[in-house]
Amino acid sequence: MAAAVFLVVVVVGIVSAVVAMSHRSPVVNVLSLVVTLFCVAASYALLGAEFLAAAQILIYAGAILVLFLFVVMLLNAPEEQRPKEPRPFQRAVGLLLALLAGVGGVAVLIGIEVVAPAARVSGDARAIGRLLVGPYIFAFEFISVVLLAALVGALVLVKRKH
């Protein structure tokens, strides 16, 4: 059962990721990435991280990608045109590097000696909350400063000068 779900998640996730990265229309890119992020959320759920799965959908699909969609529509971003100067060498090197990252990563991972899976830890909100306001309290408070800085920065960047 878990294996079947995992296979579906992996296949859908990879196909939608490829579409998200290769399709010419920006709207299709964004929507396809929504599907990929859903698959990541499903993976979290399979790994026992229920809270993160819900947070992933809430934050990524519900907020971040809506923002992307918003900007795509605001700019009325056109489909990507064929480049005037196609740079075959750069493209080949780029593809090669990405392939290297993928193949290399998988090769290294397969070679790793697998640790025996530890006892299942429940990733419920209570346990994560205790960690957040316990050992990680400084980082937790600091992230709000980061978000505020980003908020102000974004406002300054898009503000029109009168």
Binding site: G13, I14, M21, N29, E80, G94, L97, A98, G105
Partner: peptide, 19 residues
């Protein structure tokens, strides 16, 4: 790892800022 490689390919190959 596979997802990461696909994402990296997108960053390296695409020319649209949104992508």
């Amino acid at each position: 790892a596979v997802l990461f490689a696909i994402g990296a390919a997108g960053v390296l190959l695409r020319r649209s800022g949104i992508s």
